[in-house]
Amino acid sequence: MKIIVLMKQVANKDAVLRVGNDEKWIDESDIAHQTNESDGYALEEALRMKEAKGEGEVVVCTLGGQSAKTVIKDALARGADRGIHIIVENDQKLSPHQIAKTIADAIRDENADLIFTGLQSDDASYGQTGVILAELLGIPHATIVIDIDRESLNGNLRVKRELESGWYQWFVYQLPALLTIQSGISQIRYASLKGIMAAKRKEIKEVTPTIEDFGAAQQIQKVYMPLKTKQTQMLGDGDVKRGAAELVEKLKTEIRVI
């Protein structure tokens, strides 16, 4: 069983973001990066599938600039078998369809049994790369997958999708299929020292794609700090304890819940 996991490098969750000079993206200089959260869960699920099956290959694939190689190296250290790096600098300029098309061209010949992605990226948050990719590859998909029945590994795959407001639904798929994985599907493992050492010998294939124009692309005209919808009263003026005391006063006299 071959599973391809698509993973993306994004700005660190705690990074302080500044709007870039062209006002079309953030200023990427000096920004710390991390692997997109739900992609990490996608990798974990793929590794667990391979372990449950007792055979197979987990291939991690990322599209991004040279710095994104960290994502692949980290995945290899956790247990992925090899990597494919589709090298595109300034990938934030690509629309979701362009990203999906570029990935489709790079992985089509792998003929994977399963493709996993996180359910959306924490930067552009398009949430559609996986679904478009499935359509381009002509395979069925499921989004927001929160559980996979590993008992079903040898037949048709049973996957649990999250619906809204606490509802869930199982679907049965024939392979190949593409699944977008929800955060929290399982606890993510750490890379072991052995894994880190082993990763150094694993293959990372580099692909330099030709990006095709896409006439129907959505284009970011401008990014900016969100407009405030509310007047926020800031309390304490930097002194948390004073702020807390002031807040209790407000809870008593203005909000009246004490």
Binding site: A216, A217, Q218, V223, Y224
Partner: peptide, 10 residues
């Protein structure tokens, strides 16, 4: 953390 104004081409 940020808003983006977006137009659609085509």
């Amino acid at each position: 953390k940020l808003d983006a104004d977006v137009i659609i081409e085509g």
